[in-house]
Design a protein around this nucleic acid. Sequence first.
DNA 1: GATGAATGAGCTTTCATTCAT
DNA 2: TATGAATGAAAGCTCATTCAT
Lengths: 223, 223, 223, 223
Amino acid sequence: MLCTSITAGEGEAVARPDPETTPPPARAGRRRKQHARREEVLDVAARMFFERGYEATTTQDIGAALGLLKGSIYYYISSKEDLLYELVRQYHDDTRVYFERILASDAAPLVKLRELITVETAHTATNLTKSSLFYTEWRSLPAERQREIVAERTRHEKAVEQWIREAQAAGDVRADTDVRLATFAIFGMVNSVYRWFRPDGRRTAEEVGAEFSELVLGGLVAR
Amino acid sequence: MLCTSITAGEGEAVARPDPETTPPPARAGRRRKQHARREEVLDVAARMFFERGYEATTTQDIGAALGLLKGSIYYYISSKEDLLYELVRQYHDDTRVYFERILASDAAPLVKLRELITVETAHTATNLTKSSLFYTEWRSLPAERQREIVAERTRHEKAVEQWIREAQAAGDVRADTDVRLATFAIFGMVNSVYRWFRPDGRRTAEEVGAEFSELVLGGLVAR
Amino acid sequence: MLCTSITAGEGEAVARPDPETTPPPARAGRRRKQHARREEVLDVAARMFFERGYEATTTQDIGAALGLLKGSIYYYISSKEDLLYELVRQYHDDTRVYFERILASDAAPLVKLRELITVETAHTATNLTKSSLFYTEWRSLPAERQREIVAERTRHEKAVEQWIREAQAAGDVRADTDVRLATFAIFGMVNSVYRWFRPDGRRTAEEVGAEFSELVLGGLVAR
Amino acid sequence: MLCTSITAGEGEAVARPDPETTPPPARAGRRRKQHARREEVLDVAARMFFERGYEATTTQDIGAALGLLKGSIYYYISSKEDLLYELVRQYHDDTRVYFERILASDAAPLVKLRELITVETAHTATNLTKSSLFYTEWRSLPAERQREIVAERTRHEKAVEQWIREAQAAGDVRADTDVRLATFAIFGMVNSVYRWFRPDGRRTAEEVGAEFSELVLGGLVAR
DNA sequence: GATGAATGAGCTTTCATTCAT
DNA sequence: TATGAATGAAAGCTCATTCAT
């Protein structure tokens, strides 16, 4: 078989386990409760940013959804923009976990490619709200923070490009394939998942990941 | 060969020729000039909406880019939202031209699929700014107008789904392909072109279209 | 005597007692304070609309009169137009109280007429600012709301017309009186009170009401 | 009979004959045409101010009604406010004609009163649009011009008050009548005519004038 | 005489943010 | 912790007015 999965489990594609659901250190109850509430704010904000967009969501909306007045959420956050940044950063960090692992693996290029497509697709589907922010709302961040995100995305793209090129050199990918275009095609596909995926749909996040990588690999490999 | 192009030329993928650039009828210069300036406003707005997003672009920005005060652009438009809608509608109308033609053709399903991918990709690339509005800024339109756009997109998706299903029934597409997921994958790919395509890049809009359809068909067809 | 008052007191002619001036229930101080401030906004706006007209009064004017910035008054109201409507509606509602009572009474037509003139005149004089809005600024309201007001006015006019006609049939009003014109005359007289009445003037609102009805009845009754 | 009309004809109640309809002096055709067009502008503006109010009428509205662009009306007028002022002044001047004549007459006070009511009512009805400006839109004029109008109105009021007082001294008016209030009542009645009078209605302007004075006199005179 | 184009001032409204309580 | 109240900056839009052509 051409491609086998690098990892046994798909655990990485799941949302970061909420640090507050794991049993907390005994004392420091105050701070814990505040922290828990902060996560709530983040969650609510993520959902609203996803549904209406960052600009169209007001602090009042967020407050109301939490049973608070708009001014009150500033007890938990420092600014609306920080809210967005924090969410994007979380997604970014989660992304890094599986990306670094795949990068470090010594599997064949096409195996790594298949793995990244599978996992990234699943990850996007599993983190619907945050991923939409990562892909569409990042423009509302200030320049410096935009750059961070673009840089991360570029790393993924460069890796994929590299893998395809290697596979092409090895004769595993059709020689006439335009590698850069193929890379763009792959990410267009993978990154669009948040637009239509619904957790209660016909397919699980993992199934979508598997199907997508099948499609891509089918289009690339030399016969 | 499995697929031949339906049409000889790719003319449809090109932006509507600006009616003002074609030599105008001798008289009626007045109205022409005003119309020309209106097109300028639309163009400038399209570019700014594309670059910064609709919400982040102020009427002041648009005015300044034209050497006008913010209030002055209302000589040419009726509201900022109308500006967006007009742009989106233009794109939508252009889209319809080639879509109807392909729909009406009696080519084989996979031929139609290849054609749509090719032309739609090229069209997106050729109308960079407007297509970004069609795919990302439409959420700033009021509900009724959003529905128009979603409806148009759905028509394209349904057609593609249908074609793949027919090809699958005929044994031309792998039996284990999830048609809906494949459809989503295709549109994710095609619609993402506006994010990276640059007119002065390595490839022309048409080349990208051709390459993309090659990739997709390669992933779908039974061997 | 031809006419005796239907009611003993003239209480109805007095402005609705501000619910906040009556001793409030012990707790719930918060909401009271906000409500009280909202009433202040309404009062200030009423006075300014009265003095300069609705269109000529800016939100900035209203804010400044309250020691607020223009944007700040939106903490208490939802729009400038709503401010006007609320004021007009209050007047309208107060009006209804005495109008329904008189309508329901089984006094003789001329007695009811005298009563309405008396009370409506006094009511107009007692609610100077609001009545000016009801009579002159209502045109700034949207069509639907204008209709409400016109409808209410028409009810009063129809009632008066009806009473005069009945009295005429009974021989109590000169046979050659044009009832419709007389009705217009009466309302012209009564509704103009807000133009010159001043609370600190020679006459009380009630005195004016009594005098006006005397004049009208004198002009109408057959000798 | 108590009151006989001072003048034979009611001509004064009619709108000033348009100076342009009378045969114009041979030459100066240019200026005449311009002047005629100016009157058109005034007429259109008067009608619109009457219907929607001065503030709610835009120069664009006026222009459109004349088949002109908004900027073009400035060929005929110097400002929107001047338009209003000119109209109000015209009404004011027409008013003066009959007022001075009555003032100068040596008829009995009640005769003069009856005459003023009759003529002023008819005049208001005959000059519907301008009178509405005189009575309601004058607040949009600058302070100095407002004063002119108030002064004119006051002259009328003072005269009426004076006449009633004289008649009261002579025993012709009930001793217990509050003269000032009666005066206000009269003007409230007379000045409200523009609110409901329609040229194509049941009654002519003159009939309304006669009826109104009958009513008032009936209410005032001692029996 | 009239237009097309633009100005500039002002308007209503929204909203993220602050802060004393 | 959360509220009530207010800020201040900016937004979209309107409109009387100007002026070269």
